[in-house]
């Protein structure tokens, strides 16, 4: 391991026939940090995680996790990592404690050690009262808590979390996020993927923005946001009582305006140069628009993504790869739009 990097990825590529899911990505993850991979569904986040956890063989490039090669030393890698995958890894017909015992045994721990560790972990995720109930009777949130406990069984050096809050209610989402921050304090390196901007901002020390299999930017969240303010001015939110298409089109045509996205029927978000507010107001006035509010706001990762890829952080790409449980795209769409507000 060189200069504190617990994961070193270089030129990692995964092709499925003629579709390139992950396109020669390279990055390092530092020991003890929370590293986020942010991107829409189908961007290659899960495939990257699957390669790093030895579940999928790369078609090119290489990676080391905890100093072990993910190809030639896969069993070693598996000993040092924990995985919370997209789908919850729990057997519905086993109880929480039985699930943990099984995975403990598969880690070749002694029975006493497993019992002790399992008890600790179930207390940690506040599931010890439920440990003798079948996992199939739990709510999704409860399952995810036990699932995380399971991933922590072998005291992993690196914990991989693939969309850990997907499909959870706001309350559980908050609990899980706090728990992740807590794990970081315990010295566990965390790699997580998400398509939710504020999750990445809230949790991650550094974020790699991934789109169409490529990492388009990688830095701390603060630095990523500076990309926008440094180069290109600011992000404005504009509310117009009688917002019309002509107004939006007019604004888009302005020289210093880089992008416009809709927030609601009356609100738009504009990424524009510093000197363009006057021009924008002119356009709205020209169409007899009644401005309710206008103001510069702190740029978000959404704006960074928009700026870097020229596309909104929606998941048109989600239908590209069909997995049995990915479900209809509309579900995810509704999900992401509600979160990006």
């Amino acid at each position: 391991m060189k200069n504190g990097a617990i994961i070193e990825v270089s030129g990692l590529t995964k092709k499925f026939k003629d579709f390139t899911a992950v396109d020669s990505i390279s990055f390092d993850v530092k020991k003890g940090e929370i590293f986020g991979l942010l991107g829409p569904n189908g961007a290659g986040k899960s495939t990257t995680i699957r390669m790093l956890t030895t579940l999928t063989r790369p078609t090119g490039g290489e990676a080391k996790v905890c100093g072990y090669d993910i190809g030639s030393e896969a069993p070693k890698v598996r000993q040092h990592i924990g995985l919370v995958a997209e789908k919850i890894i729990l057997y519905d017909r086993l109880t929480a404690i039985e699930n943990l015992r099984l995975f403990g045994k598969l880690q070749h721990w002694t029975t006493e050690a497993i019992e002790k560790r399992a008890d600790e972990l179930l207390k940690l995720v506040s599931m010890d009262e439920w440990k003798d109930r079948l996992a199939g009777t739990y709510s999704t949130g409860m399952k995810q808590r036990v699932n995380i406990a399971r991933a922590l069984l072998n005291e992993p050096d690196v914990l991989f979390l693939d969309e850990p809050t997907l499909g959870l209610d706001p309350q559980t989402t908050r609990t899980i996020r706090e728990f992740i921050l807590d794990l970081k304090k315990r010295g566990i390196t965390i790699v997580l993927t998400t398509h939710i901007m504020n999750e990445a901002e809230m949790l991650c020390d550094r974020v790699g923005i991934i789109d169409q299999g490529k990492i388009v930017a990688l830095d701390t969240t603060d630095n990523l946001k500076k990309i926008i303010s440094k180069e290109e001015g600011k992000v404005l939110e504009l509310a117009v009582a009688n917002l019309k298409n002509e107004m939006v089109e007019g604004i888009e045509k302005l020289e210093h305006v880089m992008s416009v996205s809709h927030l609601s029927a009356t609100e738009i978000r504009i990424h524009a140069g510093h000197e363009s507010i006057d021009e924008i107001v002119d356009v709205v006035r020209k169409h007899d628009g009644k401005i309710l509010n206008i103001g510069a706001i702190e740029p978000t990762l959404e704006d960074v993504f928009l700026h870097l890829t020229g596309r909104e952080m929606r998941d048109e790409a989600s239908e590209k790869i069909k997995t049995p449980h990915s479900g209809p795209g509309s579900h995810f769409r509704a999900h992401s739009t509600s979160r990006t507000r």
């Binding site: 579940l55 997209e86 890894i89």
Partner: peptide, 9 residues
């Protein structure tokens, strides 16, 4: 998805 759990062990 549980197969991933055994495979990652």
């Amino acid at each position: 998805g549980t197969l991933d759990g055994i495979l990652a062990a």
